[in-house]
Design a protein around this nucleic acid. Structure first.
Lengths: 228, 228
DNA sequence: GTCCGACCCATACTTCAGTATGGGGTCGCC
DNA sequence: GGCGACCCCATACTGAAGTATGGGTCGGAC
């Protein structure tokens, strides 16, 4: 809780309390922007509207639970383009498409590219609200996972290369002796690196180290043979 | 490799070699069934066709890389019904919908329910072949993950309840001493269960145990705090 | 009743992990 | 040239893990 000096409702620049959800809207129709803003505000959600994809891209992605409502047809680059662009940039915000010109191949393409929902206009308010609720649920979960991984990543940045070498050995279930042999150093030195790495990662137990190393290295998680 | 006495090409009952992919087709149109069969056979894939969902459900799910091509409109229960039914039963075979009566909400619904693709008829052969190739790629990966988890599950079946208790403690990074306290037994007994469990799971290292226990218990994987 | 498996405990010993203390070297930077 | 980082090694010790050997209770299967 770092509640600062300002009330954080409907502000966009500083970093508000985490729980307040934000809905981003990109639509070229001013009426829709206005009505969606009203609708989401009326249910206690923060909103941020844009008339084009370029406008949204100028903005920083919000650091709180959020989702993106995206019109398919837009001046300049389309909604699908934006979806692709965001994916490239590693932005994982959940996307709900809305469009008046819907056809099956396009909707399928959007869904395959990871969209969470695809609503042809006109739709009932409740449909969109449901979709948004679902999207926010997703985003909250995603942010949880991300923050966990990021915490570890931050801790891991202070590791020296050698400490990382040793950690990988530990995660593979090797004995200090074996790690020492592989690295061409003595067991003592391995212990040194290992305990130092453990301190930096704030892990006391081997179980912890294993999990953290796995989070770092892409979490594939081969539970392969007995390492004996 | 339990290659039986029969050649396993286009047979359906016994369990053929793993690499040969199988395409299941459910469509009420005999012409389509025939042409799809020809098409897939011509590219070296095994095919199995059904005229209705009920027919397919009478069949055992194949134990090899496969995917399901599903007509949306079908006599009796629809393709979406079958999709839901399979999901309920825990059958994860990738599904590609094909249909002549496509509309956006239906396609979106199918995709949200996990379909891999959705092709309105008529489609080009190559489109379907591409989709199938992608689906088989998915299925191979899925089968790999599943088999890994299943191996562990099989090993874990021979564990006694107490051994499982101890293992959970180990995976949480607790000391034998702490596990003993939690279970109300002595450290010696914990060591006994632990080594016995390790033998049954064929894991020599703690790292291995952690991973295997995680595979067993739904793989959420909270790398939480230093465990005291 | 007997056997077996799951559970429990103990003593004794080996190996491994973890820490402390003290020493060495190279490199790059101010 | 000193300072700090990263790297390397040694001896000595504590505590945890792992193994072996021996023993015990209980309940269900044969």
């Amino acid at each position: 809780m770092q509640a600062g000096t300002q009330v954080a409702l409907r502000t966009t620049e500083d970093r508000p309390v985490d729980a307040l959800p934000l809905v981003l809207v990109v639509d070229d129709d001013p009426d829709i922007r206005a009505s969606l803003t009203d609708m989401f505000n009326s249910v206690g959600m923060d909103t941020l509207v844009f008339a084009s994809t370029a406008e949204l891209l100028k903005h920083d992605m919000p650091d709180r639970p959020s989702c993106l409502i995206l019109d398919l047809r837009l001046p300049g680059s389309s909604g699908l383009d934006l979806q692709a662009r965001l994916a490239e940039d590693g932005v994982n915000i959940p996307i709900i498409f809305i469009t008046g010109y819907a056809d099956v191949p396009t909707s399928v393409r959007a869904m395959k590219a990871g969209a969470l929902d695809f609503l042809p206009k006109p739709f009932r308010e409740q449909e969109l609200l449901d979709a948004v609720a679902e999207a926010l649920r997703h985003d909250r979960q995603r942010r949880l996972n991300d923050s966990e991984r990021n915490e570890v990543r931050v801790l891991a940045e202070s590791l020296t290369p050698r400490e990382m070498d040793v950690l990988r050995g530990v995660a593979r279930g090797l004995l200090n002796k074996q790690i020492a042999y592989e690295l061409g150093i003595t067991e003592i030195t391995v212990k040194m690196h290992r305990s130092s790495a453990g301190r930096k990662l704030k892990s006391v137990s081997v179980a912890d180290m294993v999990r953290k190393v796995e989070l770092l290295s892409g979490k594939s998680g081969t539970a392969g043979g007995g390492a004996g």
